[in-house]
Amino acid sequence: MLKNRLIPCLDVKNGRVVKGINFVDLQDAGDPVEQAKIYSEGGADEICFLDITASNENRDTIYEVVEKTSKKCFVPLTVGGGVRSVGDINKLLNCGADKVSINTAAVQNPEVVVESSKKFGSQCIVVAIDAKKNVDMWEIFTHGGRNKTGINAIEFAKKMEESGAGELLVTSMDRDGTQAGYDIELMSKISSKVNIPVIASGGVGNLDHLVDGIKLGNASAVLAASIFHYGKYSIKEAKEYLDSKGIPVRI
């Protein structure tokens, strides 16, 4: 039986983890490789790096980080943030990323999704959708949530499936950082509209939120960042909790 996936996400800036596990025994709390290893040893089903590097000059450091991590972590590694072109995707894959998540570029130029999924296969193309509730629809935002687009997130999700995306990473901007739980309505609407897996993101504050994302939001995978930072919960605890709630997970 196919298991639901639990994906911890690490924010990486200029090659260092800026929000990550703050364990006392960690030699270097900013080393992405070390943190990714802890997650993968704890049973993470995949690891996600979000590159939040501000300046273009420091962009190249993410390639080094991916290269080092992929030599030590043998679960799938997804990298997102600042991916603009087929060339960027190619570079990340060559460094050892297994999947690349595309956000702004997919909205501005959906051809990137068409072209890259043809070239590298749908399995490595994740489209990240950042959406905010706007009266009667969920609207897509780009550039890390700064720019509104007027695009309906649910219709866009369908379009991305048709363009060749292998998975959708759906983040509710209303919930992101609130620890109030996923936007279940958004997740379930998108999940029922498309036939590719949906990864729920944005808003996890406790382990019940993960359960809801799968049970109510129909997500195939649940992504979380801050509950794993500072060691509030470990991956193992989260998986055991999901299991105790009858959700099929890899333990």
Partner: peptide, 9 residues
């Protein structure tokens, strides 16, 4: 859903 993505036994 397709692709069949993830951990299976």
């Amino acid at each position: 859903k397709l692709p069949h993505i993830g951990w299976n036994q």
